[in-house]
Design a protein around this nucleic acid. Structure first.
Lengths: 397, 397
DNA sequence: TCAGTCAGTGTGAGCGTTCACATACGTTCT
DNA sequence: AGAACGTATGTGAACGCTCACACTGACTGA
């Protein structure tokens, strides 16, 4: 066995063949080998085959480092993700990765706990990505603090920031070319340089979907459980919600939670129940995420308030299991997959990839089939309203 | 503004300073600069400060590519993750990343949909990581097929495979040095070379915890909802479960699901209820994950079978929201964080890092506090039993 | 006093690519 | 026939770093 494994080069564990070795063994120059591996057209059929044969024999792989050294392209994207313990981000990340891979990019990932988040930790990570030589940055920035850090990080590479606060951010960016702006002078250049983009769930559209649906059922008395104020998604969701429910003349109250967890919403709901007569309860509670909705739902259950007969409950996210909750949860499912895809496509666009440029190396039809990189994509990603048992028409109109 | 930004080098966007430029400006040789950035002791205080000053002025960063080219160390680990849509993996991944970062490694991530998994897709990814030049591999391999692919991939780098089937795998590995083995000859070398390790949740211990707990409550009549057969975790969980419940002389039945989702378990539970008289129902249902438990729980609820008064329900994973289910779910919480940490430490150990070796660059006390890289760590990662409302003593003993 | 040591520094080669050229040869056009 | 061109190939220099080694001068110890 040992003897066998020593006989052919391919299975020698340690040594990694170089381009020169291939060239020598194939009787050509290193440059010809280079042409072969880069699919240059100007190589005769015979030579190409000979070289490819040797490449296989030697189990040759081009050195990414050497290549990156001269081309200055590492084909690597740095991805800093916060809030990953919550459901949405992971599907987003999966689609980001998949688009990156389709285009031959590597995804270098850093996960940051948004609870233990510090500016310093953030910059250390960004710094290490800079050391690594990433070509672009992707920030999954759930909290306002992280968005700010992502915006003001001093990097020259293109970056896309995933956050629902994009509307406000973009307004701020437009303002930044003129005088007043919350952005510090040192970051001004990057912003002007058009190297920062935003993508996020369109919270306005989502809020409209929910309210329109509930409105049609006859609801107009509601309590909204908001997520933590320092989370961009929560803030935008709240704002959109308040504005539209106000427009429709609803009686809408808001309870701002400090966390996304079920427990706090549960406690708040208990308080609400105990402080309010049954007749005074809202006809519907809208929560900022499914966990909160679970908590609220549980509190109602324990107090003998029936869902949806007495009060409807609506969540947000459509976490796994929401469909088999008791009662199953009406909720909003954002298109996280589209979010990730859009973010990545934006980024590729900024890198000059995707339109019609040199997407070298056997690209299959997938890209075309999916409509390619749509440059004109709006920042707001859509959501779907999933109606289940927890919502119904109110008893009293 | 433009004039200002041109004046100092640091904010010039495009040009990236090289070591030689630093050397020249500091009036030293490139080698001295190299010594400074690598913390070589043999540099005088004065020189070091001067060089560091210039480094700051020029905003110099060593080129990772150039360095990797000569050292042959990319400081990058390739992580192929399957089954990421389910809850466990993401926390595992977070702790993997954090340990990697602590040791100055980059984590290059690929996510593979275990449903659309093909051998070819897998090998393309492994191949791209090889192209990238990763120093080691980490496989999060939930299904048996992925474990096999991970084991038999022809790579010379160390790899750690995260799977609960480690016991069987390790037995197979031990056997592989002698004649008979399921492993193909071409992979024999790597296996012998001691470059493959396994880490996983200790399903036996977890099963014991659940059964001991239930046993003490007085249960001995049970139905076990198993996960898909082709998932390693499910298979091991099932095996451990069956063996131990048999030992205790339980009346234990098993239903094997095709998926981890709530819906199938829900349907199966309905079937169970309709086919069985109330008196014949088990006193407890143990599910392979929380979603299944939700499905079962819902079916009972709809049929008027009370949980836990009539039947107890136990889950696995402790997904977010399990604590506010109606009723809140008794479940097993595996230590995913420890799983990831252990995997990464094993990998670092194989790379010769962590014991007492040159962990260059300001390592804080964290490592020591956590006990460092414990080489002797057993493959089985522990779990915690979380007792909640869904389980209680059976009415009839 | 002079070899020996050692901290501090410099020199040149080489890592494995790509890039900008230069060269060789065959074909086509006038 | 000779210029002009296109195809197929080769040559050498760069990319920015680390490594092995050589060098300098100051301090040591006999």
């Amino acid at each position: 066995m040992g003897a066998y494994s020593m006989r052919n080069q391919a299975s020698q564990p340690s040594h990694r063949a170089s381009m020169n070795e291939v060239a020598e063994k194939a009787g050509v120059s290193h440059q010809t080998v280079s042409r072969v591996i880069n699919n240059s057209p100007n190589v005769s059929r015979a030579t190409r085959q000979r070289v490819e044969q040797v490449i296989r024999e030697l189990n040759y792989r081009p050195s990414n480092s050497a290549r990156a050294l001269v081309t200055r392209h590492t084909k690597t994207i740095g991805f800093i993700a916060g809030g990953v313990n919550y459901y949405g981000p992971i599907s987003t990340m999966a689609s980001i990765e998949s688009v990156a891979r389709e285009h031959g990019f590597y995804l270098s990932v850093a996960i940051i706990d948004e609870r233990e988040y510090t500016r310093q930790a953030f910059e250390e990570i960004a710094d290490s990505f800079l050391d690594q030589g990433v070509e672009a940055f992707l920030f999954l920035a759930p909290t306002v603090a992280m968005v700010e850090a992502a915006v003001s990080a001093t990097i020259n590479q293109p970056r896309v920031i995933l956050t629902s606060t994009f509307e406000e951010q973009e307004r701020a960016m437009e303002g930044s070319s003129s005088a007043s702006s919350a952005v510090s002078p040192s970051t001004r250049n990057q912003l002007d340089a058009d190297l920062v983009r935003f993508v996020g769930i369109d919270q306005v559209a989502a809020a409209h979907k929910v309210i329109d649906y509930l409105s049609e059922l006859g609801h107009r008395d509601c309590v909204f459980f908001s997520g933590p104020e320092d989370w961009g998604d929560a803030a935008m969701r709240l704002k959109a919600w308040q504005r539209y429910s106000h427009e429709l003349g609803w009686n809408a109250r808001t309870l701002v939670m400090k966390s996304w967890d079920a427990s706090e919403a549960y406690e708040e709901a208990r308080k609400l129940i105990s402080e309010t007569s049954r007749e005074q309860l809202p006809t519907v509670v809208v929560a900022s995420n499914d966990l909160q909705a679970f908590g609220v739902s549980k509190a109602f259950h324990e107090a003998g308030v029936r869902v949806p007969e007495d009060v409807s409950v609506v969540g947000f996210d459509d976490v796994p299991g929401a469909d088999f909750h008791v009662p199953s949860l009406t909720t909003v499912r954002p298109d996280f997959e589209a979010l990730g895809r859009s973010a990545m496509q934006k980024l590729l666009g900024m890198l000059g990839i995707g339109e019609g440029s040199q997407t070298a190396g056997g690209v299959n039809g997938t890209e075309a089939a999916e409509g390619g990189v749509d440059e004109a994509v709006e920042p707001g990603i859509g959501s779907e309203l999933i109606v289940r048992e927890s919502s119904a028409a109110p008893r009293r109109k």
